[in-house]
Design a protein around this nucleic acid. Structure first.
Lengths: 206, 206
DNA sequence: GACCTTCTCACCTACGTGTTAAGC
DNA sequence: TCGCTTAACACGTAGGTGAGAAGG
């Protein structure tokens, strides 16, 4: 059980492994205004997508790459007066098995060949709808995704990392209009709302 | 290089492995009238989908499951007088690396848990468009898919099987109207043509 | 002409978005 | 009322079909 602020984490780094976050600029835009991620009963994808470069693995060894979500503090958060504010005591921390990247397990060679992305992980707030792609989170709590690499022969975690930029608050509906606008502007699946959003920006500018 | 008729094959069966074909009734309907599969430049999916049950693997060992395509004879086939007939000498046999199931490599436990299906393998007739999901075939030649299981530790093939029902002739356009009708009736992606097909059946019945 | 291949198209499946109104 | 959650919806992305015309 972990609480409090932390920087990037690196454990057991016996193999000079390094992980690099992609789309760092985009993640930063969301982070600056406090990112929000929708959670639903059926599960909702994350946007931006967590995607990384991995280096320094043994090409011939096999690894599993996992995504888990650290609850960052002991507060339930509320959006009031156009700001996210820490509120009452948090719900109990959820301990569930992490989301395994669907290509797991696989060779170091394969993981290092291309970008490793997690587009299909789904965030849910209902315990009764957990499939292999669903991750259970509490709404209105703050989380940060953590990427772990496991050596499947020794069954040990050889590397972990977590990026400040990927921090977010789980919500059932967006609270901050700026977050909503950024999602619409960059997520191709939200293109249906792009015209309305652009029109709103223009009239706001006047 | 293999020619001639054969029954189901089982090699190296040290682990009492068995593979069971799904949708056997549907495959048989196509086989009875000689099945055809479309090949295109970009690659076309197979229908029906090759899907199987696997039993008898070591749950904790890791395996790769592959699909390859045996050219069944030395003829180029032609559809004339409403029948497929063996024609002139075949094109040169293609030797390429098999299509690996996208879940490969994985634990015996994982392979045995659910149906293992190959919905995404794509048949192509152009060598310049080969990706990891494409398989190169000669149009108007007869093929039968072969499923292989490889123990990745010993790097040996521990089991192979091939089903008569899954035999087909590669084509760039359907030749037999009955094959076309069966595909439309059972493939959900062809539902757009179902009404026209049903109308044709009714008028043919009169 | 006969046979085979290629390309564009309308029409589907499948599902990822925020919107909105209703529910609690 | 207020704050939060849910479900139906319209509108996208992404891509799998055979039809039919054009090309070789």
């Amino acid at each position: 059980q972990y609480f409090g602020q932390y920087e990037q984490i690196q454990y057991y780094n016996q193999e000079n492994v390094s992980i690099n976050l992609h789309n760092r600029d985009l993640w930063n835009q969301f982070h600056e205004i406090t990112n929000e991620m929708i959670v639903t009963k059926a599960g909702r994808r994350m946007f931006p997508i967590v995607s990384i470069n991995i280096r320094g693995l043994d090409p011939d060894k096999m690894y599993t790459v996992e995504l888990s979500f650290d609850q960052l503090d002991s507060h339930r958060w509320r959006y009031a007066s156009c700001k996210w504010q820490p509120g009452m005591k948090a719900d109990q921390i959820i301990h569930r098995s992490p989301y395994q990247h669907p290509d797991s397990p696989n060779y170091g060679r394969t993981w290092m060949k291309d970008i490793v992305a997690f587009p299909k992980v789904k965030l849910t707030n209902k315990i009764d709808q957990i499939g292999t792609s669903q991750v259970l989170l509490h709404s209105l709590h703050k989380y940060r995704p953590r990427i772990s690499i496991i050596d499947i022969m020794s069954k040990t975690k050889i590397y972990e990392i977590s990026f400040d930029e990927t921090e977010f608050i789980a919500v059932t509906a967006y609270q901050n209009e700026e977050v909503k606008a950024l999602k619409i502007r960059h997520n191709p699946f939200a293109k249906a709302f792009l015209d309305a959003e652009n029109f709103k920006r223009e009239t706001d500018d006047e």
